[in-house]
Amino acid sequence: MVFAWSGRLLIALLILLVGWWLARRVAMAVQRVLARAGADPLLGHFLYNLVLVLLLAVVVTGALDRIGVPTASLLAALGAAGLAIGLALQGSLSHLAAGVLLMVFRPFRVGQYVEIAGVGGTVQDVSLMHTRLLTPDNREVVLPNGKVAGDAIVNYSARGTRRLDLVVGIGYGDDIGKAIAVVRELLGAEPRVLADPPADVAVMQLADSSVNLAIRPWVKSGEYWSVQTTLLRAIKERFDAQGISIPVPRREVVLHVARDASALANGASNPSPPKPSP
C-alpha cells in the first residue's frame, strides 16, 4: 500500500516537473513568435503568462488525478468560480480583450496623431486596459480600450502625407484668374508643399458675399499645422498687396414703419386742445 502510494506520488511529481518544463517552453515559443512578428512586447508578455497559466492548470489537474484526488468536483468548483469572476469583471475583461486586439491588428502606433471618440491627440501608450493620448494643448486623455476598439479611429499619421483644405473668399469684383495665379505662386514658393500630387486651386462656391476658392496642397503629416498657418498669412498679405479683397459677411437691416404708427407719432407731436367742460 505504501509502495503503491509512493509510486503514484512519484509519478505525480514527475508529471509536475515535466509539465512545468514543457509549459514554459511552449509559452516562451509563443513569445518568440510574437517578437519575430513585430508584436508589442507587452502583448508578448501577456500571452506568455496566459499560456503558462493555462498549461500549468492542465498539468496540476493531471497530477492530482494521478494521486487519486477527485478532479471532477475541483474542475466544477473552478468553473463556477471562473464564471462568477468573469461576470463581476465583465467590463474589465472586455477592455482586456480589446487591448489584445489593438496590439495584434495595430490600427495606430505610439507617436501617431489620431482621433478616437471625438478626442484628437498623439498616442503616448497602449496598454492592455487603456490607451493614453496627449492633446495639442498638453492634456492627457485616458480611454478604455473597449471604447477605442468599438469606436471610429481616424489616423492622421498613417499615410505620411495629408491634404490641406483651405477656403479663402475674394470679392465679386475681383479678378478670379489673378487670385488663383497669386495662390499658385505662393504654393510654388513654399518648399514644404509637395509637388506630387499637385496642388488644386479652383472656385469652390459662389457665396452670399464672396467667391470662395478651394486651395488644396499636399504636405507631410508632421508639417500640416505649420504649413497651414504660414500659407494663410502669406495669402492674406499678398492679396492686400495685389489689391484683392477678402470680404466679410454683411447684413443689411431695413426698418419699415407702419402707417398707423406714423399717424400716432404725428398726433403725439401735435396734440389737439382739450374740450371745454360744460
Rank of each mutant, 00 (worst) to 15 (best):
Leu194Ser: 07
Gly188Leu: 04
Arg233Pro: 01
Leu186Asp: 04
Asp200Pro: 00
Tyr156Lys: 13
Asp165Met: 11
Val167Thr: 14
Gly169Ser: 06
Gly171Ser: 14
Gln228Lys: 09
Arg233Thr: 14
Val154Ile: 15
Ser226Asn: 03
Asp208Gly: 07
Gly173Ser: 12
Ala181Asn: 09
Leu231His: 02
Met204Asn: 11
Ala214Val: 04
Ile215Trp: 00
Thr161Arg: 15
Val203Ala: 05
Ala189Met: 05
Ser209Glu: 11
Ile176His: 06
Pro191Arg: 13
Arg184Cys: 11
Thr230Pro: 00
Leu206Val: 07
Trp218Gln: 04
Pro144Glu: 05
Gly171Leu: 10
Val167Tyr: 15
Gly177Trp: 03
Glu190Thr: 12
Lys220Glu: 00
Met204Leu: 12
Ile215Ala: 06
Arg192His: 13
Glu223Ser: 08
Leu164Tyr: 12
Asn145Ile: 12
Gly150Trp: 12
Asp196Val: 04
Arg159His: 15
Leu187Tyr: 04
Ala207Met: 03
Ser157Asp: 14
Asn155Lys: 10
Ala189Ile: 07
Leu231Gly: 01
Arg233Asn: 05
Pro198Asn: 07
Ala195Pro: 01
Thr229Phe: 08
Val167Glu: 14
Pro197Leu: 11
Tyr172Phe: 15
Pro198Ile: 09
Asp175Glu: 13
Asn155Leu: 07
Val183Leu: 06
Ser157Arg: 08
Pro198Met: 09
Gln228Thr: 06
Gln228Pro: 00
Val182Arg: 05
Glu190Gly: 02
Ile176Asp: 10
Gly173Gln: 15
Tyr224Leu: 07
Arg159Lys: 12
Pro144Cys: 04
Glu190Pro: 09
Ala207Trp: 09
Val201Phe: 02
Gly150Thr: 10
Val219Met: 06
Arg233Trp: 05
Arg159Met: 10
Val219Lys: 00
Ser157Gly: 08
Ile180Asn: 05
Pro217Phe: 01
Asp208Trp: 00
Trp218Phe: 14
Trp225Gly: 02
Leu143Tyr: 02
Asp175Ala: 09
Leu232Phe: 10
